[in-house]
Design a protein around this nucleic acid. Sequence first.
DNA 1: AATACGCCCAACCGCAACGCC
DNA 2: CGGCGTTGCGGTTGGGCGTAT
Length: 335
Amino acid sequence: MGRAPCCDKANVKKGPWSPEEDAKLKAYIEQHGTGGNWIALPQKIGLKRCGKSCRLRWLNYLRPNIKHGGFSEEEDDIICSLYISIGSRWSIIAAQLPGRTDNDIKNYWNTRLKKKLLGKQRKEQARRSGCVKQEIKREADNFMIPVVMNQTPYWPQLPLDIPPTSPNQEAPLKDQSSIKNLLIQLGGRFSDDHQQTTTTTSIQRPFDVSMVTQDQIYASSMSINSMNSTPRSQLPYTHYNVSGAGPNVIQGLENLPVELSELLLYSNEQPLDGLESFYAMDVNGSTGTSSVESSTTLGDISYFSYPQMALDYEACQQSMLQHASFEEYKYFGSQ
DNA sequence: AATACGCCCAACCGCAACGCC
DNA sequence: CGGCGTTGCGGTTGGGCGTAT
């Protein structure tokens, strides 16, 4: 027997809301609030709607100061940057964009931004010759990669020495610098924040797993997960170096179509529109290539020797791995 | 003009977290 | 501490609309 439905599905209206329904709901909430009980609300006001549906309608459409469409370049920047850092945590991303709803951002990402970014990647990819793919595969053999657990690629969530996140850090980020701070904690760097970033992060990667205890890894994992309402996998992760370890394939990606794997490997090679503020810098502190929008040539994967950039690369890979669907592969990877 | 196709977005669904008893 | 109801979240769906053929 399954869970009891939240409402009598046979007796609720579904589909688009009428202006009358909107008016009823809006008037009631503006006057009385939600009463802390969405389930009971539709009955109170005589709406044949599920409580969840009322809540969604209010939050996504009727609530004051909601903006629809017309995303600015700055908003694009923020969405892209946060997505690369934390993935599809739409509610968190929406919290940084006043007037935007998670649903709106999710739709915007899925229908436009993602295509914009991946489309650019594909263009760049197509521009490059097949021999370049060979090159990056060879270089990838020297990349520190995560162990596959239960056949599911598990990419590290965070730098090991990020300080524990305080509850205060869950407060909404009100401005670009706050967002930068968040991204810095997550491994990003910005061209105009050299001094700050070099002091707030001191990532040592690739690292020797033998020097890190499982407890440390787990504690770090938990600290970053604490930023999010829903902790992700809490499995400890382990790195090992596959240099000279046989198959010419990245562990953890072998179950993915090779084109997708390559797309992931390409994912930080060229500038992406809307990410201008999300820069990495090299060890000399000069503004330059970023993990996300690196201009690093394929033959030059020196960013692996730059700890920060290796981290950014991982973040990008992780994000792509976790969120690239097979449909994307079919669409982008087969063209 | 008719039809097919693709895009966009509002809304739904299922699940996990949360909170109360 | 466990059960249950509610809330919040992210993925998915389906219909409207614009564009291409």
